[in-house]
Simulated assay, not measured.
Amino acid sequence: MQLFLFLLLAFSSGDGDIVTSSLSKPREIKAALLAHDRAIHVKDGWIRDPYLVKGPDNFFYLTGTTQSSQQEETEQTKYNIGLGDSSLVGYELQAWRTKDFITWESLGVPYTLEDGVWFRTKPEKFNSTPKESWRLWAPEFYFVDNKVVVVHTSPSPVGGANMSVASSIEPQRPWVNPMGTKIGRRHDPSLFRDDDGTWWMIWGATLIAPLKPDLSYFSGEAVEIGPSGENRKMGHEGCLIRKIHGKYVLFGTGWSTGIMRKGSYNLYYATADNIEGPYSERKFVGRFLGHGTPFQDEVGKWWCTAFFNANVPPLAKKDIQSRDLSQNA
């Protein structure tokens, strides 16, 4: 099966080769969406792991790894290439929504680490760690029984994940944590609803397990899945599943060199007839699409989000196809 994905969101505001067009006029965005043949720069603002999903209210909801909502953007923070202690990633989940990818409504900060289970159960960790060192990574929205569900991972103050449920389809407080601390430490958790209504959790690279209907825990044992053939790993993070043309499509993110922060941050996929596999060999989706979200627009066309993730500012486009990028991110 061949799978074609195009960039929709490119959050770098530089002249990198992710951004093929920086559009501001509504008619240009509409034309590019209709053409479906190039990257479309539809929103500015620093973000990693941009997750986009269509809600039951026909809005497209966007969230991702962000800096603090109070952080003023400067030339130094625009790319936020710092890692570890120098990272500007915050502990807040920021969110936006749109119906046309032209007008974006900010939903503010509807969720933070303080809404998750670890803030309540491990207060000593939070009290002993400065807030500027709290980290909320890779949040995602899902809609389960007319309620929005947030899943995310966090390295600090507690190395763990959260799965939190709101009381409606609006991402807003109060949040409950049905799995409690049993969710444990699961890197980049993602959810998938199968055709029979079963919800699955996907994490790492790659484990999957079915969830109980009330999301209180797993209803079965975790199963390790991945591509067959020579490369038996999807990568190292950002794994998710979609059902496309009757096939289970497992997406995963990895560096082109197989070494952390060396080369380009790419998106790969493998397919199967059964969610537990066996899966095909790993195939290439796109360069620089790592931890992007494959999604369908309102007319069914497939797109993928993209974002800046490098140790250096965006590179010039000239000769980018043949340039050796393996020495750095």
Rank of each mutant, 00 (worst) to 15 (best):
K25V: 08
K318F: 12
L267V: 04
K212T: 15
Y79H: 12
A310R: 14
F251D: 02
M1T: 13
L33Q: 02
S167R: 13
P294C: 01
A166W: 01
S87V: 05
V249N: 08
K233Y: 12
V299R: 10
G16Q: 07
W303F: 14
F192T: 06
C304N: 11
C304I: 15
A166Y: 04
D195C: 09
S69Y: 12
A31F: 07
E114L: 10
P56G: 09
S219T: 04
S264A: 12
W303D: 04
G252Q: 02
G84A: 11
S256I: 00
H152P: 08
G64C: 09
L136F: 02
H152E: 03
G197K: 00
K212Y: 00
W96R: 08
Y217R: 12
A329V: 05
Q76A: 15
F251V: 03
T206Q: 07
R135V: 08
S154Y: 10
K54D: 02
L7D: 10
S168E: 03
A39W: 10
W134P: 04
F141A: 04
S22N: 14
Y265D: 05
P139N: 14
R232N: 11
V109M: 11
W137G: 06
H36S: 09
N274H: 08
G116D: 11
K182Q: 12
N58D: 15
L93W: 06
S156F: 09
D115W: 00
G226R: 02
Y91W: 13
A272V: 05
R27Y: 15
V89Q: 07
W199V: 09
